[in-house]
Nucleic acid binder design. Structure first.
Lengths: 152, 152
DNA sequence: GCGGAAGAGTTTCGATTCGCCACTTAATTC
DNA sequence: GAATTAAGTGGCGAATCGAAACTCTTCCGC
């Protein structure tokens, strides 16, 4: 067995390192949250997050480089620039909410407010869970690693 | 840290900043992944992740301090120490998997292998999604913020 | 018991990154 | 055309990271 295979065996071909390459830095998730909240301009990110301007500049261009945000100069006011979530960026919402819900559950004194609701029935969304292909909820004990080529 | 309080003032009481306070640093999620893979000893974390020993030491005690890992000296060999996931730590699994699945979807050349399966039917787990209270899958457009005291 | 080795850190120190503040540049408003 | 706004960039001291060497305790073989 070659070294590459051994490496794969040890930690598998895992999507976590590349994800952290993009989102693992200090402000990335907070910038993402702001973007989900409708912030699009540099100055608004800056004042909303209280982040240093040079760091913000670096993080925004990093997120753009990785395709999470799209940078478009504003039509009607060409001083302004819009940073908008791409589809790839929107797909980070489950990860962000899972992290947020964990933070709410464990490290907050008061219950969260305001709360995220479904627009159709105005009820709070469900906690994010791991599910089997058929929809059953799973916990850590129910999970196992399996090689793709292995027979079931 | 005072910054969290400031953040709360600005954008509501959100669980994300405290979650990032715990898990936002460079190696925290990778250490967590290793813990989920059954790693318990300092030396194994070190060789598995290729992280500098001083940083690993700092991250582990940070995770212990925040109640994600529990540190217990080994019974039968008192040179060794075990770092095990607490319930609070186990509850990070959905967030970690959501991030991992995102990384697999967008930033990996080859499909992931091995793959995480349900032990009961040996089928791969479902993608992690946001759901309404009644189980319907939701996307970003279906979500809204609502004050707790507000009438529905 | 004793020499050697393993496990879990700690120290040291150079390299990198962070973060505050001032500055620049271009577009817009008055 | 003067002042203001938006989006950055540059300088510089402080904090953090990272690799390697070192410490300290515990275990193993003899």
């Amino acid at each position: 067995m070659g070294r590459v295979q051994e490496d794969m065996k040890r930690s598998g071909s895992c999507g976590l390192p590349p994800a952290l390459e993009v989102m693992g830095e200090r402000w990335s998730f907070l910038i993402l949250r702001a973007a989900f909240n409708g912030i699009v301009h540099f100055e608004n990110f800056s004042s909303e997050l209280g982040i240093a301007r040079n760091i913000l500049s670096d993080r925004l261009s990093r997120l753009v480089r990785h395709g999470v945000l799209q940078r478009t100069p504003c039509e009607h006011d060409r001083r302004k620039v819009e940073y908008r979530l791409t589809e790839k960026g929107c797909d980070l919402l489950p990860a962000m909410l899972a992290l947020r819900q964990w933070g709410e559950k464990y490290t907050m004194r008061t219950p969260a407010n305001p709360v995220l609701v479904d627009t159709r029935d105005r009820r709070p969304i469900a906690p994010i869970r791991i599910r089997a292909a058929d929809g059953r909820e799973l916990c850590w004990r129910d999970l196992a690693w399996q090689d793709r080529s292995e027979p079931s």
